[in-house]
Design a protein around this nucleic acid. Structure first.
Length: 319
DNA sequence: AACGGCCGCAACCGCTTTCCC
DNA sequence: CGGGAAAGCGGTTGCGGCCGT
C-alpha cells in the first residue's frame, strides 16, 4: 500500500539547487508566503516536487537560519535536549530557532556523537555537565538532588505562570488570539543572517507578508525585546529567569550562564519553552509540552516518571 | 600531481501525522 | 467518520571538498 512518492512523476529535477531555482522559490514565497507547497512547482515553473521545495525553503532559504559553526552553548543544549527528547530533531530545533532540524541532526551525527563517545572513553572525559556530574554520585544522591530540583523548578514555574504576575504566559490568552502581552515586532521575526541566500532578494525581510510558520518564528533576541514594557511582564520575566536558573541547575546548565552577564546570552532551553508558550498564543504548536506536563501534572509531579525517563536516556547515552 | 579515503552537508526517501472533503 | 492527499519528520544516501599518501 501507500501512495506513490510525489517525485515519481517524470520531468522532476533532483539534486542540488541552482541559484536561479532558489531565486524563483524565494520570490514566490515572498509574494505568497510559505505553505501551499503543492502549488509551488506549478506556479513557479520549477521542475521540482513540492516536497523538495519545502525542504529547500525550510533547510536553506528560510530567513533567520544561522549557518556555520555551532557554539559551545548550542552544543550543550543539543546534547541535553537529545538526552531528554531522543532523536526528535524538530522538537530540538524548536529550542534553537536559528538552526534547522536537518542541521542539528547532521551536527549530531557527524560531530556530537563522536565527541560524546570520545569523552566517554577518555579518563578525564565526561562532559562537565549535569548528567555526567550526576553519574559520579550515587544513584540515591542523584535521585535526591533531582527531586529537590524538580520541586524548585515546579515552584518557580508556577510563579512564572501565575496570572496575576504574568498575563503574557497565561494559557487563557490562547482563545482570543489577541494577547495583551507585548510581542516582538513582526520585523524581528526573521533573525538576520548575512549568509542566508534569501538575501538574493533585497528587502525581502521587510516586504515579507507572512511570518515563517516554523521554528524561525521567534528568535532569542526578539523574545528578549519584550521585557520592561510593563510591570507585569517585567515581573514575569524575572520569574522566568529565576525558573530557568533552577531548570538549568536541574540539567546542569549553570556553567553556561554563570560566565555570561548578558541575559540574552544566557537564555536556556526553558526560556525557549516560554517562546513556545507565546507561540501557542499565535496558534502555533508548542513542542515539548511534556516538560510542562511533568512539572505541572500532579500525576507525575513526584518526578518519578521523569526520573525514570531521564535516567534511562542518561544510561543510554553514557553507558 | 594523482589517487584514494574520509568527512560534512544538502537532498532524497519513506513512514507518520494532520488536514480536508 | 473514513479515506485520501498534503505536510511533517527522521533516517539515509550521494556528492563535493579536503587531506594524507
Amino acid at each position: 500500500m501507500g501512495r506513490p512518492p510525489c517525485c515519481d512523476k517524470g520531468g522532476v529535477k533532483k539534486g542540488p539547487w541552482t541559484p536561479e531555482e532558489d531565486i524563483l522559490l524565494v520570490s514566490y514565497i515572498q509574494e505568497h508566503g510559505p505553505g501551499n507547497w503543492r502549488g509551488v512547482p506549478t506556479n513557479t515553473g520549477l521542475l521540482r516536487c513540492s516536497k523538495s521545495c519545502r525542504l529547500r525553503w525550510a533547510n536553506y532559504l528560510r530567513p533567520g537560519i544561522k549557518r556555520g559553526n555551532f557554539t559551545e552553548q548550542e552544543e550543550k543544549m543539543i546534547i541535553h535536549l537529545q538526552a531528554l527528547l531522543g532523536n526528535r530533531w524538530a522538537a530540538i530545533a524548536a529550542y534553537l530557532p536559528e538552526r534547522t532540524d536537518n542541521d542539528i541532526k547532521n551536527y549530531w551525527n557527524t560531530h556530537l556523537k563522536k565527541k560524546l563517545k570520545k569523552l566517554q572513553t577518555s579518563p578525564e572525559g565526561r562532559l562537565g555537565d549535569g548528567l555526567s556530574a550526576s553519574q559520579s554520585m550515587t544513584r540515591g544522591q542523584w535521585e535526591r538532588r533531582l527531586q529537590t530540583d524538580i520541586d524548585m523548578a515546579k515552584r518557580a514555574l508556577s510563579e512564572a505562570l501565575s496570572p496575576e504576575k504574568s498575563t503574557c504566559l497565561s494559557e487563557s490568552d490562547h482563545s482570543n488570539g489577541s494577547s495583551s502581552c507585548t510581542k516582538p515586532a513582526q520585523a524581528s521575526i526573521y533573525a538576520s543572517s548575512t549568509e542566508n541566500i534569501a538575501r538574493l532578494l533585497k528587502g525581502w525581510t521587510t516586504n515579507s507578508r507572512k511570518p515563517a510558520p516554523t521554528n524561525s518564528a521567534m528568535t532569542q533576541s526578539s523574545f528578549n525585546m519584550a521585557p520592561g514594557t510593563d510591570a507585569a511582564s517585567s515581573v514575569a520575566n524575572r520569574n522566568i529567569i529565576e525558573f530557568s536558573k533552577t531548570f538549568d541547575s536541574l540539567f546542569g546548565l549553570e556553567s553556561l550562564d554563570s560566565s555570561n552577564s548578558d541575559i540574552s546570552q544566557s537564555l536556556s532551553p526553558v526560556l525557549t519553552l516560554f517562546h513556545d508558550k507565546t507561540k501557542m498564543e499565535t496558534g502555533e504548536e508548542m513542542p515539548l509540552s511534556m516538560l510542562e506536563k511533568w512539572l505541572l501534572d500532579e500525576g507525575v509531579c513526584q518526578g518519578k516518571q521523569f526520573f525514570s525517563d531521564i535516567t534511562l536516556v542518561a544510561d543510554a547515552n553514557f553507558s
